[in-house]
């Protein structure tokens, strides 16, 4: 099939950037979206135009490196990552608009590449369980009810892609943060630091310039791992509890 692509191009963080239009043909339905961009890049390279920069690594939906705003939807029209989106979701002759994640906490570095370091800094503020190597008790010392373990797992599948932020009209990272709070809060091992974890992570979240959540729900619709809104409720509850405990 043939497509018209409108793509955001920006030479570096300081450049104003703008939309550019490209045509690609020879796109097959079996291609992934990123392979389609690879094809375009080969064409650009041949023409002497610098290829479009975009992030990807695993290309199997797990590393969280890829992420594009496709026709106004984070990761495109299917509930999956950009790398797992296939061209069979589009029709011949279609015009596709491709933009980077837009969030002031995720500055654009070039074209479609953004800096998501803010997520790492949020994790640094308590998204962990403090246990030094070697000091762990025998794994079976603390049984974890299966349902709790399942819930912890379900939300621990967050890949840190940032689609929630990109989709949220407030630019909030609450879903990402809630997923981590719920993952660790659901397990007995996560209890000792539960209060300080939520207070510090939220503080860093705010400091990074993410917006506050007003429970709109676009984040969860965009999340490739289908992290549910429960985690934001949990996040709010944990913060309230921490407040009660004097944090």
């Amino acid at each position: 099939m043939k497509l018209t692509l409108k793509i955001w191009r920006q030479t570096d963080a300081n450049d104003a950037g703008g939309m550019h239009t490209y045509d690609v043909d020879d796109v097959s339905a079996d291609m992934s979206f990123l392979e389609m961009l690879d094809v375009l890049n080969e064409q650009l390279n041949a023409k002497g135009e610098e290829p479009i920069a975009f992030d990807s690594d695993c290309r199997e939906g797990i590393c969280g490196m890829c992420g594009l705003m496709i026709n106004g939807e984070a990761h495109g029209p299917v509930t999956t990552t950009t790398c797992q989106l296939h061209m069979r979701s589009f029709t011949d002759g279609e015009t596709i608009t491709i933009e980077p994640w837009r969030s002031d906490a995720f500055p654009v570095l070039k074209d479609l590449v953004v800096d998501r370091g803010a997520f790492d800094r949020i994790i640094q503020q308590g998204g962990f369980i403090s246990v030094n190597t070697g000091s762990a008790p025998e794994a079976h010392a603390v049984p974890v009810p299966r349902d709790d373990a399942m819930r912890a797992f379900n939300v621990a599948t967050c890949i840190g892609c940032g689609a929630c932020v990109a989709a949220c009209p407030n630019g909030s990272a609450s879903l990402f943060m809630g997923a981590k709070i719920t993952h660790l809060g659901e397990l007995p091992q996560g209890q000792p630091e539960r209060d300080s974890r939520v207070v510090n992570m939220v503080a860093q979240h705010d400091h990074e310039g993410f917006g506050g959540c007003t429970n709109i729900g676009e984040c969860t619709a965009a999340c490739p791992k289908e992290i549910p809104l429960d985690v934001i409720s949990q996040l709010n509850k944990d913060l309230r509890t921490a407040m009660k405990h004097g944090h």
């Binding site: 369980i129 070697g134 762990a136 008790p137 794994a139 974890v144 912890a152 993952h183």
Partner: peptide
């Protein structure tokens, strides 16, 4: 395994 469980790795149970 001990270390990972203590870190909160949600292994199947």
């Amino acid at each position: 395994i001990d270390q990972c469980v203590a870190q909160g790795v949600p292994f199947a149970r």
